[in-house]
Amino acid sequence: MSLVNLAHVCSHLQNASKARLGLTSIPVSKMHVNLMLGLQREGFISSVTLGGTTPPTPFLLQDQIDPEEHSDMAQKLAAEPWAAYPSAESPSGNLLGGREISYNVKVPQNPARRRLWLGLKYWNNEPVLKNMKLVSKPTRRLWLTSEDLGRITRTREAAYVKGLTHPGECMFLTTDRGILEARECVERKLGGMALCRVY
C-alpha cells in the first residue's frame, strides 16, 4: 500500500479542479475507491464510476422531456404539487417524467486498463474540492488515536498534525473499519492512519 499513488491522486484532483474539469479519472485501487466513496459521502465529488480508458457515458438523472410535455407537467404540478415526489405506487417514476437511466459501463477485463472516473463539483464558479493534501507521507506514516482526533477536529494540534482550522475541512483516515472521516472516527472512538486532508 504505497502512498505515492495517493499523493499523485491528490495533486491530480487539485489540478483537475483548477482546470474546471467535469470528469476525471484516477488509477484504481481498493484504497482509492474507498477514499473516493468517502469524498462522495462528504459531498466533495458528485460521482464515482469504475470504467475503462475512455470516459463512461455521462451520468444523467433524468432524460429530457419534450416542450409539449413541459406545459402538461406544469399544469399537473400546479394542481398536485406533491406529485413531484416519488410515492408508494410509483417509487422510481414520478410525475416529472424522469426515468433514471443507468448505462452499462464496460469495465475492461485487464485490471491495468481500469480507471476510476470521478465527477467533480463546482459551486458559485468555485471548485468544491480546492485543496487536497497528504498527512501521512510515504516515508512517514502518522497514526492518530481517537483522543488526538478529538483535539484535531476541535481545531487544536495533536500528534504533529495541525487542527482542521479551515471552514469545512475534512481529514480521512484508514482504520480497521475502512476509510473514515475524522469526525466519524471520533464519534465511533476509532484511531487509524491519517491519509489526507481535504477542503
Partner: peptide, 16 residues
C-alpha cells in the same frame, strides 16, 4: 473572499 459555512453546506449538499 472568505468561504462561509452555509455556502460550503450548499456546495457539498451537507448539513453544517
Amino acid at each position: 473572499n472568505q468561504k462561509l459555512p452555509d455556502e460550503i453546506a450548499r456546495a457539498r449538499g451537507k448539513k453544517l
